[in-house]
């Protein structure tokens, strides 16, 4: 390890564009650096990354590494690990931070174990206590949080949950950070999988991102026939109907109405969550909503942690009453 600790942020880009959670991870790294006195460096990787590297270099960073190779053009876990393992073994940073994306979930645990180091996944915050770095992560579907520490020597690995830090708080540097080019040597034979192009299945007939009011249903709706009730409420409010993953998995609503990490990310004026417990994968898709009303029979449901208004009760009784009341209010207006 170098004399001064280094936090290395492995960013994620697609077609030359860095995603928002990469910037959020830079913010997390800068905050940790401010407490630990460590410096922050970033990695951009791919087949052609100079644009993305130039973009991230505007942030307050000690250095930006652009790791490139034709073999990194399309993501594979084998390719990414082949590029990063020797790089990290040489640099030995104190901490390696990643955005917690589907892609990172696919390779970061393997990379960490290839270097015989532990990884704390899906961190929502951190603590620096008497020289010890802890990451806070949700457990038991968000009902509890845990402060987790690493044992052994650095480098330590952690992934940061989307929405845990603010991208617009990533500080710019006084001058662009120096960019160092790293040519990754990746044998074609080391890539064992053959990925095809990405595609979308459902035509996005509904664009929930533009909806001002969303009525969203979860497991607590109990039966398919009760969806109709939620649809009526959405109609009365002039909003869109949406759902958490289990409802779409069951085929009760089409997948293009799914909110969450595998569906759409929305930020309406009102998000009315009916019978949604609030698993992390759902919350990341709606926690930017301006107001959240949640109805759930379980007073401990994690959805209540981010709700402005909590109703503990039976949605099958509350929704019909609410439909009537909304209709009355609309008629008066």
């Amino acid at each position: 390890m170098s004399a001064r600790g280094v936090i290395l942020v492995i960013t994620e880009q697609r077609e030359g564009k860095l995603n928002r959670v990469s910037y959020e991870t830079i913010t997390a790294a800068q905050k940790i650096a401010a407490e630990t006195g460590w410096s922050v460096e970033a990695v951009v990787m791919g087949a052609q990354v100079s644009v993305a590297a130039g973009e991230i270099a505007a942030k307050k960073l000690e250095k930006v590494y652009q790791i490139h190779s034709p073999a990194l053009g399309q993501y594979t876990a084998d390719g990414y690990i082949a590029a990063l393992k020797p790089f990290l073994a040489e640099k030995l940073p104190s901490l390696v931070l990643f955005p917690h994306t589907y892609q990172v979930r696919d390779f970061a645990p393997k990379l960490a174990l290839a270097l015989d180091r532990p990884l704390i996944s899906d961190a929502v915050s951190y603590k620096y206590e008497s020289g010890k770095l802890l990451f806070t992560r949700q457990m038991f579907q968000g009902k509890f949080v845990a402060d987790v520490s690493f044992s052994g020597e650095p480098p330590y690995f952690a992934t940061v949950q989307a929405g845990s830090f603010r991208a617009d708080q990533a500080e710019n540097g006084p001058a662009p950070a120096p960019i160092e080019t790293v040519h990754a040597i990746i044998e074609n034979s080391s890539i064992r999988v053959k990925p095809h192009e990405m595609y979308k299945e459902a035509k996005q007939a509904v664009d929930l991102t533009q909806a001002e009011i969303i009525v969203s249903v979860g497991r607590g709706i109990k039966e398919q026939k009760n969806i109709e009730m939620a649809a009526k409420l959405a109609e009365a409010l002039g909003g869109e109907l949406a759902a958490s993953r289990p409802i779409c998995d069951a085929g009760w609503l089409p997948i293009e109405r799914q909110i969450g990490s595998s569906g759409q990310t929305v930020s309406p004026k009102l998000y009315l969550a009916l019978g949604i417990s609030g698993a992390i994968q759902h919350l990341v898709g709606m926690k930017g909503s301006r107001s959240v009303i949640a109805v759930n029979k379980d007073p401990e449901a994690p959805i209540f942690d981010i709700a402005d208004v909590a109703v503990v009760g039976n949605l099958l009784e509350i929704v019909p009453a609410l439909i009537e009341e909304v209709k009355k209010a609309k008629a008066e207006a």
Binding site: R117, P118, I120, L134, Q138, M139, G142, K143, F144, V145, A146, D147, V148, S149, F150, S151, G152, P302, F304, D305, I306, A307, D308, V309, A310, V311, V312, G313, N314, E317, I318, P320, A321, L322, E324, E325
Partner: peptide, 27 residues
């Protein structure tokens, strides 16, 4: 390689107002 130092109920980031009563009143 990892140690769970402590487990606790999350500190709420938002002020949540609880509404209760019979369905009509809640509505």
């Amino acid at each position: 390689g990892l140690k769970i130092e402590r487990l606790y109920i999350p500190v709420k980031q938002k002020r949540t107002e609880t509404i209760d009563g019979p369905p009509a009143e809640v509505a």
